[in-house]
């Protein structure tokens, strides 16, 4: 099974001009792979609101066809699972990457409800997201990512990664006000 970092390294290699919204544990990794004004580290956050935030960005930038990648965790998505139903109403270039480690990693590694048992691909398909991918190995994800991160959306990619314990609570690399100013400037 791939690591969280390996999953994001693949994303970084395929990322072009998309906005990338990161949440929770991904905030600790993505700044080591990218430093773009189109990176938005959603921290401090309201847990579970990363996908809605990405949808809002897509809808606000619909005329420009701005593509948005949201990297969310299983704990966050479970907190707001209905957001997939909302997303599925729209044909927008939103690419949801679910990093599923089965854990609340930043709180000490307690398992989420239904850890490693919930079939997120079936849920995404069931709500009507047209393109759904599922991957647990680095090489397989590397082979799929080029297709998954382009073309019509929304897209849902369920990336199963190893659980990791003892990781520090992440902090965003810039204050929120600075992040917002950078992102808005880049979106003009």
């Amino acid at each position: 099974m791939m690591t969280h970092r390996e999953a994001l390294e693949v994303v970084a290699r395929h990322r072009k001009d998309q906005v990338v919204v990161t949440t929770m544990g991904s905030v600790a990794i993505w700044p080591q792979l990218s430093d773009s004004p189109l990176d938005f580290h959603y921290l401090p956050s309201s847990m579970g609101q990363g996908v809605p935030l990405g949808l809002g960005l897509c809808l606000a930038q619909a005329e420009k066809g701005r593509r948005v990648i949201v990297v969310t965790g299983d704990g966050g998505l479970l907190m707001n699972l209905g957001c997939l139903v909302t997303v599925a109403q729209y044909r927008v270039p939103l690419y949801i990457l679910l990093i599923d480690n089965g854990l609340y990693e930043v709180t000490g590694g307690q398992p989420v409800a239904g850890a490693r048992r919930t079939n997120f691909a079936v849920i995404a398909q069931g709500v009507g997201i047209p393109r759904v991918y599922e991957c647990s190995e680095r090489n397989a994800w590397a082979a799929l990512a080029g297709e998954a991160l382009q073309g019509e959306g929304p897209v849902f990619a369920w990336l199963k990664v190893q659980g990791e314990w003892g990781k520090a609570t992440p902090t965003a690399p810039r204050p929120m006000a600075e992040q917002i100013a950078r992102l808005r400037e880049a979106l003009r």
Partner: peptide, 16 residues
């Protein structure tokens, strides 16, 4: 409703 606020955050960041 919390989701409504999340969508609104994205809309505001995107200029709407």
């Amino acid at each position: 409703e919390g989701e409504a606020v999340g969508v609104a955050i994205g809309l505001m960041l995107g200029g709407a």
